[in-house]
Amino acid sequence: PDLGLTQLFADPNLIENLKKNPKTSEMMKDPQLVAKLIGYKQNPQAIGQDLFTDPRLMTIMATLMGVDL
């Protein structure tokens, strides 16, 4: 199971919303991170391994779920 990750990354406004959010806007200036996020739309399971190697993803996930870290 993808634990709902498919829906989190399926939002067509995902990148724009993250660019507008004060907690994630600075991160979204990294083209490699943006490319990763776009890739998760097609393969949400890929985030599982990346969560352990890129701490920014935890902040992004929390933001998408509405959790304040």
Rank of each mutant, 00 (worst) to 15 (best):
V34D: 00
I15K: 00
K29A: 07
I38E: 14
A35Y: 05
I47W: 12
L69A: 13
A35K: 11
L8P: 03
L33Y: 03
G39K: 14
G48P: 12
L64M: 07
L14W: 05
T6H: 14
I15E: 02
L18V: 02
P12V: 07
A35Q: 12
N13G: 08
K41C: 10
T6W: 09
N43P: 02
N43W: 06
L37F: 03
Q32T: 12
N13I: 04
V67F: 14
L5Y: 12
M65I: 09
E16L: 08
A62L: 15
S25R: 14
P31W: 05
L69G: 14
Q7F: 07
L51H: 04
G48C: 11
L37P: 00
K41R: 13
D11V: 04
L8T: 04
D50R: 03
K23R: 13
N17Q: 09
I38W: 05
T53P: 03
M27H: 04
P22D: 05
F9M: 07
N21Y: 07
L37V: 06
L69E: 14
A46C: 07
A35V: 07
L3N: 12
Q45G: 15
K23I: 12
Y40H: 04
G66P: 06
K23F: 09
K29Y: 04
F9S: 02
I60P: 00
L3Y: 13
G39Y: 15
N43Y: 09
V67S: 13
L8Y: 10
K36H: 04
L51P: 04
D68I: 02
K23A: 13
V67C: 08
L64R: 01
Q32G: 14
V34W: 02
Q49A: 13
P55S: 11
G66K: 09
L3K: 11
E16H: 09
N43V: 03
M65H: 07
N43E: 05
M28E: 00
M58Y: 13
D11N: 07
T63S: 08
Q45R: 08
G48A: 15
M58H: 11
M58S: 10
L69I: 15
A46L: 14
L69T: 13
E26F: 07
T63I: 15
P44M: 11
F9K: 02
K20D: 07
F52W: 12
A62K: 11
M61Y: 12
L57V: 10
L5E: 04
L64H: 03
Q7C: 09
K23H: 13
